[in-house]
Simulated scan of single mutants.
Amino acid sequence: MYSLVINSGSSSIKFQIVDPNAGAADAPLVSGLVEQIGEPSGCVTVKHPDGKEVAQKPIPTHKVGLQEAFRILDSKGLGPTQLDITAVGHRVVHGGMVFSEPELIVDEVVEKIRELIPLAPLHNPANIDGIEVARELLPDIPHVAVFDTGFFRHLPPAAAVYAINAEVAGKNQIRRYGFHGTSHEFVSSQVPALLDRDPAHTRQIVLHLGNGASCSAVANGQPIDTSMGLTPLAGLVMGTRCGDIDPGIIFHLTRQGGMSIDEIDNLLNRQSGVKGLSGVNDFRQLRAMIEDENQDAWMAYNVYINQLRRYIGSYMIALGRVDAITFTAGVGENDRFVRRDALDNLEMYGIKISDERNAMPNDGPRIISTDDSAVKVLVVPTNEELAIAQKAAKVAARM
Rank of each mutant, 00 (worst) to 15 (best):
S12E: 11
G330L: 06
M1R: 12
A217I: 03
I113H: 08
G38D: 07
D225F: 10
L286S: 01
Q271H: 14
P58T: 09
A25V: 13
A27C: 04
H143E: 08
V237R: 03
V187S: 05
V93G: 04
W298R: 12
V64C: 04
S12T: 14
V303N: 01
E347V: 07
Y304Q: 02
I388Y: 04
I105T: 06
A200P: 01
V18N: 08
D363M: 14
R175L: 04
F152Q: 02
P365A: 14
S260C: 10
E293M: 03
F151T: 08
I85R: 10
V109D: 00
G65N: 13
M399V: 13
E185I: 02
A159H: 04
K352Y: 07
R135A: 09
L138T: 06
F186D: 04
S41R: 14
L195P: 08
D262T: 12
M259G: 09
F337E: 07
H201R: 13
I164C: 10
G350N: 07
D19A: 13
F251R: 10
V44K: 03
F283S: 00
P232R: 01
R339H: 10
A374F: 07
L386T: 09
I368G: 05
V377T: 04
Q222E: 13
G313R: 11
F15K: 06
H123S: 10
Q16W: 12
L233H: 07
D341V: 01
G243Q: 11
Q173F: 12
L33T: 01
A160Y: 02
A158P: 00
M360S: 13
N269L: 02
L209C: 02
K63E: 15
M299K: 12
I224D: 04
D26Q: 15
P58K: 11
A169M: 08
V206T: 15
E167K: 13
D363V: 13
Y177R: 00
N127F: 03
L207C: 15
L137F: 11
R203L: 03
G239S: 10
A387K: 12
N220E: 05
G320A: 11
L29M: 06
I317T: 11
M289K: 14
T240W: 00
N383Q: 08
I205M: 00
V93P: 01
A217H: 03
D140H: 14
A145F: 03
L268F: 01
A300S: 03
